[in-house]
Design a protein around this nucleic acid. Structure first.
Length: 511
RNA sequence: GGUCGAUUCGUCUAGCGGUUAGGACACUGCCCUUUCACGGCAGUAACACGGGUUCGAUUCCCGUAUCGAUCACCA
């Protein structure tokens, strides 16, 4: 039987980065096993629906390179893949459970439920829940005469369908990551399966859809582990236990520091993104930053996420998606939560950025130049990308590093000027400038280097002594990338101009 | 509080009875370099605690502590 997994997010807002990791693990497993990856939209809570969220999810998955084989988007044999469009299916299964005496109708109001819980708490009951014991004191089809039940339903009184959870029963499941997990049915209450609005709760919809869609492996977050036994019970009651999917509950992503799971607040505090893509809240207009907009490459994001909770057992750190697929293994997923460390993400970005083709980076440089009113021709942008991509972590830093190339000498670094601009420096710059004037070869880094060293030899000046002054004269700064390459990019005419300007402007310190 | 789960350097982790406890990020130093980075090399740094089991426990078992998840007509 071929593997079928699904990613089933709720369109209640932007996809959390932890959700992206869950999707990634599903995807890696599907590809590794030669199976299918499905996308199902779990929009059964009409109160929390957020416009645009579904598109966001699909765009985010596409951005990181997760391809959906079947489901919302590409479609497939089990369409529709939006749960809100499948309500009749859940309804039918809920009715079946009722007919088989495995579920019942309940008419209790929110106030009555509150009162029941309060009463139980005050009585110090082990658990304040709607279960095999307490249900006999509530208003439902097990306690009310059938005629009364029918009358209430005919009158349009709101009701829910609850699972008739057994009183004493061990429910076991073999989690692929955690091993055998046993829960006593007394810890599971009579969960609502069908809400009064006619839509199913997660539990019912999830189990029904996973069965119908022939899901073989349910790979989801650890927050679902406590309700997994309930799902096993549901498969059993629905008569699907023999084809029940296998479960794998993933460890959570934790705060960078302190206690608790990673939240939006941590991202705001730490100044890093927590969503794959930028998201503008449709109601408040508040913008949340995204990995993509912050300059993280999708390859780096994937690599970073993949290693948060899983590793191949080797010392390899850098993985392409194909390599991840080849080495991925559910058994090597960790059990404990992983702290989210953005510094590692930055490092991965550096690793991938340096491998980016110059042609990809050049437009980014040009765009940033344009933003500050500088015209950067393509040939120049290509050279800048080549010169600087190994030095920075983000593409956006490229132009920041390159700014000395477009520098217009107005003010020079005072400290460098005061310490390095001396008689030798003036002599060196003058000599070099004259040599350059006489030079008629191609203005390339190697050639420039020769011109400079010849000139310094001729002037009897040790090159190392005046290099910083030379840099100061050319870029106004004491630091920066390779000066010969910088000059090549600046161009001969501009180099000559800047050297002349430096000689005119910079004053020798008063001796 | 009940239930379930987890616990190796600051962080991500390797380890699955005998290891100088390995790697990566971060940090520090050195080298490279005209400078800053990059890169290279090196260094600091960990088995939560207490009992067992065993010739021997980081590794197996039981407690304790701590952390996490969950206990809705939300997913």
């Amino acid at each position: 039987m071929s593997v079928r997994v699904r990613f089933a997010p709720s369109p209640t807002g932007p996809l959390h980065i932890g959700g992206v990791r869950t999707a990634l693990y599903n995807y890696l497993f599907a590809r590794k096993m030669g199976g299918k990856m499905l996308l199902r939209i779990e929009d059964t809570d009409q109160n929390r629906f957020v416009p645009g969220a579904e598109d966001y999810i699909r765009e985010a998955l596409a951005w990181v390179g997760i391809e959906i084989d079947e489901g919302q988007g590409p479609g497939g044999p089990h369409a529709p893949y939006r749960q809100s469009e499948r309500r009749d299916i859940y309804r039918a299964e809920a009715d079946r459970l009722i007919a088989e005496d495995k579920a019942y109708y309940a008419f209790d109001t929110a106030e009555e439920l509150d009162a029941m819980r309060k009463r139980l708490e005050e009585a110090n009951a082990p658990a304040a829940q709607y279960n095999a014991i307490t249900r006999m004191q509530m208003k439902n089809s097990l306690t009310l005469p059938p005629t009364d039940v029918k009358a209430r339903m005919d009158a349009g009184e709101p009701y829910v369908i609850r699972l008739k959870t057994p009183r004493k029963e061990e429910v076991r499941l073999n989690d692929l990551i955690r091993g055998w997990v046993t829960v006593h049915s007394s810890a599971i209450d009579d969960k609502v399966l069908l809400k009064s609005d006619g839509l199913p709760t997660y539990h019912l919809a999830n189990v029904v859809d996973d069965h119908i869609m022939e899901i073989t492996h349910v790979i989801r977050g650890e927050e679902w582990l406590p309700s997994a036994p309930l799902h096993v019970l549901l498969y059993r009651y629905l008569g699907w236990e023999s084809t029940m999917p296998q479960f794998a509950h993933l460890p959570l992503l934790l705060k960078p520091e302190g206690n608790g799971k990673l939240s939006k607040r941590d991202a705001d505090l730490g100044g890093f993104p927590i969503f794959p893509l930028q998201w503008t809240d449709p109601f408040s207009g508040v913008v949340a930053r995204g990995f993509r907009e912050d300059g993280y490459l999708p390859e780096a994001t994937v690599n970073f996420l993949a290693l948060l909770g899983w590793n191949p057992g080797t010392e390899q750190e850098l993985f392409t998606m194909d390599e991840l697929i080849a080495t991925f293994d559910l058994e090597r997923i960790h059990k404990a939560g992983a702290r989210f460390d953005i510094q590692k993400a930055t490092w991965f970005n550096h690793q991938y950025l340096r491998e980016q083709p110059d042609a990809v980076l050049a437009p980014i440089v040009q765009q940033q130049a344009t933003e500050v009113g500088i015209d950067c021709p393509t040939d120049k942008a290509l050279k800048i990308a080549a010169l600087l991509k190994g030095r920075v972590n983000f593409a956006r830093e490229l132009f920041g590093e390159a700014k000395t190339i477009f520098y217009t000498p107005t003010d020079y670094d005072e400290t460098i000027a005061a310490t390095k601009w001396n008689a030798d420096a003036v002599n060196a710059v003058t000599t070099f400038r004259n040599s350059l004037l006489a030079f008629d070869g191609e203005f390339m880094a190697d050639a420039i280097k020769h011109v400079l060293s010849d000139a310094m030899q001729q002037a009897g000046i040790k090159q190392g002594k005046i290099m910083q002054a030379m840099r100061l004269a050319l870029t106004g700064s004491g630091v920066g990338p390779d000066l010969m390459l910088t000059m090549e990019i600046i161009g001969k005419a501009e180099v000559l101009k800047r050297l002349g300007q430096a000689l005119d402007t910079l004053k020798l310190p008063v001796a």
